[in-house]
Write a protein that binds this DNA or RNA. Structure first.
Length: 95
DNA sequence: AAAGTGACTAGAC
DNA sequence: CGTCTAGCCACTT
């Protein structure tokens, strides 16, 4: 297992400010993950105490199984979604 | 060891 | 808008 990677991903996700979002791909790039899939996997396993809801897919939609809760949490922060899709052009986070 | 799986992505049509 | 393909990587069968 790659504890370092987990740590970095957690660190970065924790850094994402309320009202903004990022993508698995971005996270992977910033954290140095070998693939965005790993980021998803890491959050699934270790995202419980993190603002995981600020992480979306590349097209601005959340994973189907999480869509409901995620969109709800985002809406609570002022991130409005058009249907299932969040406008990344507006809310995308950048370091 | 080969094949399946998933909180992914980008490109083709 | 949509579906399909191929590439991706760790993990489970």
């Amino acid at each position: 297992m790659d504890e370092q990677l987990h740590e970095r991903v957690r660190e970065i996700v924790a850094t994402v400010p309320p009202g903004t979002v990022t993508t698995y791909g971005d996270l992977a790039a910033i954290a140095g993950a070998p693939s965005p899939r790993l980021v998803g996997r890491i959050l699934a396993e270790d995202g419980a105490d993190l603002p995981w809801h600020r992480v979306l897919r590349a097209d601005g939609t959340p994973a189907p199984q999480l869509a409901r809760e995620q969109l709800e949490l985002l809406r609570a922060e002022g991130v409005l979604a058009a249907g299932q899709r969040v406008d990344l052009r507006v809310h995308r986070w950048r370091a």
